[in-house]
């Protein structure tokens, strides 16, 4: 049972990196390749149908952390207090930017929220590198450790590259490059590698610190019937919004 929930937890966190990684990457690239408002609109429109289905993987990670590793939950989040607060605020302003940017017409309004999308994406990407390093060292190291900061830069660059690959797959004209679905899968795997490496190293610790079998069993029984629906819903998102004729629809809601 512990092993199954470890696999679920690993799938959720690495899935978050592989999926939300390209949303954050697109956000990072907005000032780089989105020089004009129209290009930025098309970049956001390209990722928009995926964002809600992608970011929710982290919500699930946090829930699983509470249910499966309640001890780690308190230790990890409290141990990284300032970083978690900063990352939450980054996440909040990124999301607000997406939801609000098109609610009022006008270049100033939209440009402002585009900046919050990029700033939020940067905060989250960089924060993940720092958080993973802290997790790998058992939350004992300083948050400003050079290696942690370096990992922050690495994750940021990785997400930006993954985001660029995504754009090359879904909106080649906007990205200036053309990428296949296979290339996107590979960049997704690369984006998930840092998370996979840390979770792989933490396997013995996590198996030791799982919630008791009774709790894991109840959650398994309750979650299992919904697992096929969850998979189906995610597959639908990719099926309906894959590239093709007029894949990137403007005006998009985001």
């Amino acid at each position: 049972m512990e092993l199954i929930w470890y696999a679920v937890f690993t799938l959720l966190l690495s899935g978050y990196f592989a999926l939300e990684g390209f949303d954050l990457g697109v956000g990072l690239l907005m000032p780089v390749i989105g020089r004009t408002q129209e290009t930025r609109d098309r970049m956001v429109a390209a990722m928009a149908p995926f964002v809600l289905a992608n970011e929710v993987w982290l919500v699930a990670v946090a829930g699983a952390l509470f249910g499966v590793y309640p001890h780690l939950e308190g230790e990890a989040l409290f141990g990284l207090y300032p970083l978690v607060v900063a990352m939450l605020l980054a996440w909040v302003v990124r999301d607000a930017g997406l939801w609000f940017r098109r609610r009022i017409d006008g270049p100033g309004w939209r440009r402002f929220w585009d900046v919050t999308i990029t700033a939020g994406s940067l905060g989250l990407s960089f924060g993940w590198g720092v958080a993973l390093y802290a997790a790998a060292t058992g939350f004992g190291s300083s948050l400003l450790h050079p290696l942690g900061l370096l990992l922050g830069v690495v994750v940021t660059l990785l997400f930006a590259w993954h985001g660029w690959t995504f754009l090359g797959w879904r909106a080649p004209e906007t990205a200036g490059i053309t990428r296949t679905g296979r290339a996107l899968a590979l960049s997704g795997l690369a984006a998930a590698l840092p998370a996979l490496a840390v979770l792989g190293g933490a396997l013995p610790y996590l198996l030791d610190h799982s919630a008791p079998a009774s709790t894991l069993g109840v959650m398994g029984v309750m979650a299992l019937p919904f697992a096929p629906v969850m998979v189906l819903a995610q597959v639908w998102v990719w099926r309906f919004f894959r590239p093709g004729r007029s894949a990137v629809r403007t005006p998009s809601f985001f």
């Binding site: 699930a60 829930g63 699983a64 249910g67 499966v68």
Partner: peptide, 9 residues
């Protein structure tokens, strides 16, 4: 944690 995990998961 169980109901909270179910809510998010």
């Amino acid at each position: 944690g169980a109901p909270l995990a179910m809510e998010t998961l």
